[in-house]
Design a protein around this nucleic acid. Sequence first.
DNA 1: ACGCGGCATGAGAGCGCTCTCAATCCTTTC
DNA 2: GAAAGGATTGAGAGCGCTCTCATGCCGCGT
Lengths: 345, 345
Amino acid sequence: MVHASNERRPTLEAVAARAGVSRATVSRVVNGGAGVRGEVRERVRRAVTDLGYVPNSAARSLVTRRTGAVAVVIAEPETRVFADPFFGRQLRGISRELSAADTQLLLLLQETRAGHERIGRYLSAGHADGVLMFSLHRDDPLPAMAEASGLPTVYGGRPGWAGAERALYVDTDNRDGARQAVRHLRARGRRRIAVITGPLDQTSAQDRLDGYRDALDPATADPRLIADGGFTAQGGERAMAELLAAAPDLDGVFVCSDLMASGALRTLRAHGRRVPEDVGVVGYDDLDPAAWTDPPLTTVRQDVEEMGRLMARLLLRRLAAGPGAARDEPAPVVTPATLVVRESG
Amino acid sequence: MVHASNERRPTLEAVAARAGVSRATVSRVVNGGAGVRGEVRERVRRAVTDLGYVPNSAARSLVTRRTGAVAVVIAEPETRVFADPFFGRQLRGISRELSAADTQLLLLLQETRAGHERIGRYLSAGHADGVLMFSLHRDDPLPAMAEASGLPTVYGGRPGWAGAERALYVDTDNRDGARQAVRHLRARGRRRIAVITGPLDQTSAQDRLDGYRDALDPATADPRLIADGGFTAQGGERAMAELLAAAPDLDGVFVCSDLMASGALRTLRAHGRRVPEDVGVVGYDDLDPAAWTDPPLTTVRQDVEEMGRLMARLLLRRLAAGPGAARDEPAPVVTPATLVVRESG
DNA sequence: ACGCGGCATGAGAGCGCTCTCAATCCTTTC
DNA sequence: GAAAGGATTGAGAGCGCTCTCATGCCGCGT
């Protein structure tokens, strides 16, 4: 049954009148029907479909103090969010898990510099039951907003700010992944191995740089071999150009994301360096673009979708447990990283 | 002021008590403060910040019948949503415009085949004041859901289903854009011009194909020169391979999206065809990837971000006008398309 | 036949907010 | 100085739903 936008939608009261029962009984049926006689339940169900009744969510969450929704906050300009397949994949995992639990996903984008203020207000207004937050930078104001809202929060990536010891998060073993990448380059005989990092105020970027250092022959360490590509394709392009200028003799690059690696490959080609003959390249993420580059990218695989799913699952567990539940308290999760060898290095 | 998650957030009542006024007065101040004496207003404001009061949105929208949120529904699997920069750009425009009007954006993704059912329920439950919907296919059940919910709706792309004559939408002149692309290829001396289309149950894809036919020399029309690339990169790759097999003598391709064009370029390279020497390629969209391909892509520009902004603006006007307002009724918008010549054709 | 436990149902009190309407208080004007 | 008129403020009735508690009904044991 369709309602014109000006006529009011039917309420519980209306359904109750039609089914010849009380509001309370209709409410019980709508919420599962436990404790209602089969015959009555059917009668109410019929009234519901006849009238096209849909519960008013505002009224419901006013009394239950639950919204059935989880906010996903991404601390990046949309430019990056939609340019980097990483977010899409993670979101997909989250989305899958949430909808299985019949929970709505609210995507909050931070448009402006001051956007966190809006987001904080939104969270505090009680639009969501919990928060998933990722891609955080060291002195991002967002975690404080989440904290202030009092909502259970799960972070994507290990939080790096002070006082985050008790935070719940899902991360991959970035440091180990980086080690594998660099070891692989060394095993293939590369001696001058550079690195293109992400923004170092993110723990994932810092951890990968640390892993690079771990696996490097200390004798070949050289600050000129390190450049920041900001986790964007253009950044990777630029960083690669800088590296080639500062250390023309480099023969390997570990690029801390596939997206940056695609940029780096372009620069290498433009400079006439052949990959992998002259320079070996290893990326990080193993998202779709990795297989599409020319040549296909050797990279470090992290199951991004699974990470998203884990984040959601952690949060749902937390929500189900209730505010003060100490037993069965969920704990942070760290997933492994594995090297995928293709043709670039 | 931060509240532990178990202690209740302060209510209007609490603020009123602290400021020594009535609930009604606090409500006035919170909603702008019109008609409240300056001194009282200040006192209330102080009480608000002292207590860290944030209005409960459920209670508010229960009475106002407004949520301050707009739902954006994308009728595609997330795989496409996050792989195609088109959506990101459009969303960005929408997001900009909405946040300027202090309206929240709710992104609803359709995960499963049956996802529209969930979405319909969500819309009907009154979580949003209006709907923005794009990338619709001919017999998509989503518009019916939007219709049933009674919410004002604006579509991205001209709706193609029956009974959509009165629908509000924003579109570009796809047919004209396609004509320009094909005319350009002809002007460069191409005689056997193929086309890689999107899914033809979308009006944008059909319109571009029509434009291709308009501009083609009728004498050279040939069904073997038409292939469907499904608006994805892999689809473009595959379609290009099919075309080369069916018509090895082709010397030009009009590819109906940049993403598909990037795939087509890969296939051409793999088959040893030089671009633009052997085959001229023109894309559609002019999104970031267009400039990054090798060679950079000649393409048809549509201002996707602006389209998003226009969609949001249209919806906001509609919402502001109220349900039955006939005066100043917003009308569909069609934006122009322009050719951007780079190196691929 | 009576009382009791258990299940199904209804009555009614809110959840936190907005908004109408009446009451109050100042000015202003004659 | 008093009445009129406008600006402030407060009281109170809901918005639609959930949930507790009281009530009514049944079959059971004694």
